[in-house]
């Protein structure tokens, strides 16, 4: 039975080959078979986690609390200097110039990405907007579709991962107006291992940290759009979980 590896479903489609290459690298590093299972959405992935079917995961920060506290996962590493930030965008021709110009009843376009949606709603608070007075459009499967819905007038405001926004084509960016961009820094994806692999954590960590030291390793990292890995200690995980706790369900 191979180890089961999965990646938070919010990764951009163009990174899929990169994760398969990383999976091959994981197999070589562990000296054992590893199967990469990708899930279409967060609920399906969470069901697999709940059923103890996952051994290694590159997780959304929102799921980290559940993985650490309920399932005993241990943080190994996170992307160095790369945090999850959200862009609050409207169509370029929208008269709003700042979040406070937005009004109740607006339609929100978003993906299923839980930390981006949470941070997006937080950035709408200065306009007295909350889940109680906005209309959430059905989630779309990618950030380009959020932008499309804004441009087509299907939605009034959209939550976009800043990293994804920065990689939009120039015409797509020109179709949008950014009202706010978060600068939180501490909310980051993280690579974790299940209790079944806890004793291999140090081996994995050292190998992951060394990836940025040579050309082959850097190619693997480039495929994931990660500059390098940074070690995650237990207290780093606890801090991020506390931070998410303070932000969720305020």
């Amino acid at each position: 039975m191979p180890w089961q590896f999965t990646v938070s479903p919010d990764f951009p489609p163009d990174q899929l080959p990169g994760w398969y290459v990383f999976n091959t690298w994981l197999q070589r590093t562990l000296g054992e078979p590893v199967h990469l299972e990708t899930y279409l959405d967060f609920p399906t992935q969470r069901a697999a986690i709940a059923a103890d079917q996952i051994d290694l995961i590159y997780a959304n920060p929102y799921d980290a609390a559940m993985l650490v506290r309920d399932k005993g996962f241990t943080g190994v590493a996170r992307p160095d200097g790369k945090s999850d930030e959200v862009v609050i965008a409207v169509a370029a021709n929208n008269p709003a110039t700042r979040v406070e110009d937005l009004r109740p009843g607006l339609r929100v376009a978003s993906t299923q990405d839980p930390d981006i949606n949470m941070m997006g709603m937080i950035l709408l608070e200065p306009a007295d907007l909350s889940d109680a007075n906005v209309v959430h459009q059905p989630c779309v499967s990618g950030y380009a579709l959020v932008a499309r819905d804004l441009a087509k007038g299907v939605a009034d405001v959209g939550f976009i991962l800043a990293d994804a926004y920065d990689r939009f084509s120039a015409p797509l960016r020109a179709s949008l107006k950014v009202l706010a961009r978060s600068q939180i820094h501490d909310v980051r994806h993280v690579f974790l291992v299940s209790p079944r692999l806890a004793e291999r954590r140090e081996t994995l960590l050292n190998a992951m940290l060394a990836l940025s030291n040579d050309a082959i390793g850097r190619d693997i990292l480039n495929g994931l759009h990660i500059p390098a890995w940074e070690a995650v200690e237990q207290e780093d995980m606890e801090f991020m979980i506390d931070l998410i706790d303070t932000l969720a369900e305020a």
């Binding site: 406070e100 200065p126 931070l243 303070t246």
Partner: peptide, 28 residues
Amino acid sequence: VYATVVPNVRDGRVVGYTSVRRKPSRTR
């Protein structure tokens, strides 16, 4: 600010507090 404070519990013991402050609306 709109402040949120949570106790930091480690092994069942409060070892500190985390506070996050965000931008409040003018109405609030």
